[in-house]
Design a protein around this nucleic acid. Sequence first.
RNA 1: GCGGACGUGGCGGAAUGGCAGACGCGCCAGACUUAGAAUCUGGUAUCUUCCGAUGUGCUGGUUCAAGUCCAGUCGUCCGCACCA
Length: 801
Amino acid sequence: MNHKQIEKKWQNKWLKLKNDKFDKKNLSQKYYVLEMFSYPSGANLHIGHTYNFAPSDTFARHKKMQGYNVFQPMGFDSFGLPAENYAIKTGIHPKDSINSNITKMQEQLKALGCMYDWDYEIVTSDPSYYKFTQEIFLHFYKKGLVYQKDAPVNFCTSCNTAIANEQVKDGACERCDSVVIKKNMRQWFFKITDYAEELLSGLDTIDWPEKTKAMQRNWIGKSIGCEIGFNIDIKSNKDQTIKIFTTRADTLFGVSYIVLAPEHPLVDIITTQDKIKQVKEYKGSTAKLSDIERQENKGDKTGVFVGSYCIHPFTNEKIPIYIADYCLYSYGTGAVMGVPAHDKRDYDFAKKYDLNIKKVIEGGELPFVDDGILINSNEFDGLGSDAARTKIAELLKKDGFGGQKINYRLRDWSISRQRYWGCPIPIVHCDKCGAVPLKNKDLPVELPYDVDLKQRANSPLSYHNNFINIECPKCGGAAKRDADTLDTFVCSSWYFLRYPDVNNKKKAFNSELINQMLPVDKYIGGAEHACMHLLYARFFTKAMRDIGLINFNEPFKSLVHQGLILGPDGEKMSKSKGNIVNPDKYIDEYGADVLRMYLCFAFSYIEGGPWNDEGIKSIAKFLDRVERLVDMVISASPSGDTLSSELEYTLNYTIKNANKDIENFSFNTAIARIMELVNAMYKFNDKLDTLRDTTFNLVKLLAPFAPHFCEELWKRLGHKTSIFNEKYPVCDESKLVLAQVEIAVQVNSKIISKIMIGTDWDNTKIEEAAKLDEKVTALLVGKQIKKVIVVKDRLINLIIG
RNA sequence: GCGGACGUGGCGGAAUGGCAGACGCGCCAGACUUAGAAUCUGGUAUCUUCCGAUGUGCUGGUUCAAGUCCAGUCGUCCGCACCA
């Protein structure tokens, strides 16, 4: 078969037949299957992209053949740094490079024969889309989910912009690997922390990989503890209180000092005159450290005494106050109690600065960090840690010093980026009115084309006078637009809600329609998005529900991660390593069907692995084998014989497993079963005339994997309509009932022999038959049968002694 | 340190607690062919005195029965990490 001809032919025909189109009128049978859209990078699609798209298309086609009204759209996440950095390097404007990249990627996707309905395409950098990203931002603003604050943020020195916590990997920028420093900047934030509890509990309601759910749980980091107020003991500041958070309130009597994070606002207030110099120096030196340096210094605890003391709420002891960078300002209250006897870090710190170490939990050697029995703790002595925590929290509450408190590791999502190629923030800054949100009618705030990208001291947009200067919508005075753009993850946090109503010009979407179309039934994409896109999208869904735009709680009912395809060297594919595999040459040589099917067959889909093209020929060979078989069947002359029951069994066994395996993304085993069927059919090549119906089924079974090839064979078999309008074969269970079956005979759990039995035999009859076997008989001489175990249609085990 | 995986032939990979290695690659042999390619058929875990024995990282345990369950251990990978 000439794959080039037939692939082109069927791709065109599918367009004409509107085969890939979603039927808007039949929502009751809708099935929304979505592959994460990708960034239109300058390079071609590599084999990893093909691996993401092709097998999930096989899944979608299978669903379609099962009778679902499949909605499978595709789009491009086209804002982002790479295009801007590329523009700085080459002078080619992001808008232009993105457009040509999209065209190229579309061609490649079409060449794969994926069943996308291109009527629903999304390009996030198109004003028709980002107009609504801005509108949603304003919705969030009105709902109080957006705020601006001066805060130390993660700043990538190479990308020259702030980035979110989720985008910092090992202290470096997730995109470019450069050093990330803390920088104080005025930034916009989304209040994702408002949803911490629901983002956590909602995980129990969705069909996602356990690993991903665990990662989100971890990232949200709920911890149940206690907040404790320590009053400060200096005459001038009697009414100041330091609030600390601890999960170990049971160790409260072991406190020997209090630590504030160096950035804590109380530090300057409580530092005594004689300590100002040291404190200032320490604050300066820690502020300069990058996250990476901080982590390297982990073992070596540093800090300084600020000169003042606070009072223990129960014992009234005087407790010295320190600042130390091992206390993080961004977690809890930015202050902790130091209990050296029962915390490794506090122990190190106390040793270094010669602080009191008081044991209050009976257990092992210090530092003893497990739960135990309280000692040296007044009325709490003898209690277990768990009970003590409850009692102490209660007493603290009664005395007005604090009480139980839940803390989350999750922090608000910083969304301002000091870059050009992103969605403009629909806010105006007026000296008189402050930050003023734009009106919906003024959207979209369009990104100007003529911007000097080399200006990098501030956001590039801040240098564009026509864009930046504007009248204040409130007072009409001179004002400036926000010069930053939104994190691209904002754009991708709601695209799945836009797809079904992508041409809506008035609204982001029609809520009624979206409530019917969502949640996404099957979402497919890389595991690397676990704590970024997948978390943000859940937050957006919940926030938009509370605003009243949608009525469901979770965006993605069921999630599958495909594995990662590595380079042939076993390393992650990257330009710098030069191990990127381009799928085009395989499509050219073998065709899209062969490549698609090889990707389905050669890997366990959720595992992935190093690319290796040695087996790709085998798939080409297999399809040739199928073609020959089909052609032989077509030209066979009738004899009146009927299909053997053995083959009927194989056919239905294949049908049953192919359906099950595709549903589970176990494409490799589904193909293995179809190969078995073909092998079995070849055994009957002297009775080809009996194979006609089986051949129809075979071609249908194979269609989701090799769509063009199967369309062609389907036509050769005399059909006038597309095979994708056919129903995928359904197993006839009655054909799987055999009269006879071979089972294993075990004696004392060892396999001795195999016998044929009737499937309707009772255990006694099976036992009698087993005993007749020569080898078994020999073993039974002079022995007693103590027990017989029969596993239906599998084995019989005789226990003798 | 915390969390999550994973470990099976020469290779990719299969196995609801029930005959380990499906399917394929590679390799070997046979058929067809002047020959090769292609194709078709068969074989292919290891050891073996050909009776069998041993085999799913390692050590134990549960069970009539363990790749699968449990405990421990070694190794690899991923995510988070001074989170109080």
